[in-house]
């Protein structure tokens, strides 16, 4: 055993990268859930994003176009979910599960001729001065653009939900859709927006795996990241800043687990891997503040 071979700074830096896909996907799901919509199809939207990312970047040779395409792919898939659950009033749980199945099939079909495609290099932003800071420099300021997009989005969502009128309305819709409707807000329209934001974010998260973290296309390559994103939203008690913490915890456990193994520490991998989920349940129990939005998962129909 040689724990000294683990460099905590490098560990922190890798953790930020490893957590980016689940952070992005979880952020989108958080907004959807704050609007009262439980979309269990995150995995399906992520994997579709991963496939679209490869396709768009391979065709244009530009990784940013790849990300845009991935966001679009995730958004279109979530639009399907929105139509089903908001217009045709299908059950959200069942529809989300079906969406995952659909997304896995769709992505495999779309991606089948791109298995050999290698996405274009995605450069790291070498920020002058900042990246040379001792300690903080290598940890915080030597990543690629999407890591910062993820962090900026966290701030933006936090600001939107807590500091803007539109965010207030969105939360009201999620808390009690009957009341929000009575006040004259367009419940269905607002939820469409929230769902599609969720889809676009999940698409971005998926593409981060296929374009940056791996980078290549393999069927089913998100390997459950979408489900982890769902857990993070709960862990965070539907709060954006705590979401960041949750994403680092869940992503961190994976990175830490691998690092401990490499350092020769005999660890029970399965028990360590399940610990964040147990922690999430404990958080749900202990923190009363972590109460789910009141209308979460409930079908809304404006009857006169």
């Amino acid at each position: 055993m040689d724990l000294s071979s683990i460099n905590p700074l490098l560990l922190l830096a890798s953790l930020m990268v490893a957590s980016t896909p689940i952070l992005l996907a979880a952020l989108g799901e958080l907004v959807a859930e704050r609007a009262g919509v439980l979309n269990l199809g995150v995995e399906g939207m992520m994997i579709t994003g991963a496939a679209c990312g490869i396709i768009f970047s391979a065709l244009t040779g530009n990784a940013w176009v790849g990300f845009a395409g991935a966001a679009l792919g995730g958004l279109l898939l979530s639009f399907l979910f929105a139509v089903l659950t908001q217009v045709l009033l299908s059950n959200q749980v069942a529809t989300g599960l079906a969406l995952t199945l659909f997304g896995l099939g769709l992505s495999a079909l779309l991606g089948q001729s791109f298995a050999d495609a290698r996405p274009p290099a995605f450069p790291k932003l070498d920020m002058p001065i900042l990246s040379d800071l001792p300690v903080l420099g290598p940890v915080l300021f030597r990543h690629d653009g999407m890591v910062y997009v993820g962090l900026l989005l966290v701030v933006a969502v936090w600001y939107f939900l807590t500091r803007t009128r539109a965010g207030l309305i969105l939360r009201a819709v999620g808390e009690n859709h009957e009341a929000a409707h009575a006040l004259g807000y367009r419940v269905v329209l607002i939820r469409f927006g929230a769902i599609m934001f969720g889809g676009a974010c999940a698409g971005l998260g998926g593409a981060y795996i296929s374009l940056v973290r791996v980078p290549q296309w393999t069927e089913g390559m998100t390997a459950g990241a979408g489900w982890i994103a769902l857990a993070i939203v709960v862990f965070a008690g539907w709060k954006p800043v705590r979401l960041l913490l949750g994403a680092y915890l869940f992503g961190g456990v994976t990175v830490l687990q691998l690092n401990l193994q490499a350092a020769g520490l005999a660890i029970p991998v399965e028990y360590l891997s399940m610990s964040p989920y147990v922690a999430t349940i404990l958080v749900l129990v202990i923190l009363a503040a972590g109460r789910a939005p009141g209308s979460l998962g409930k079908t809304f129909h404006a009857s006169r």
Partner: peptide, 22 residues
Amino acid sequence: LPRSAIQLFQGMLLFFLLAVDV
């Protein structure tokens, strides 16, 4: 038929079944 096409088909079937219940 590729397996992915079958998965897609199943997903579609579920969507339509859920949709028509309205």
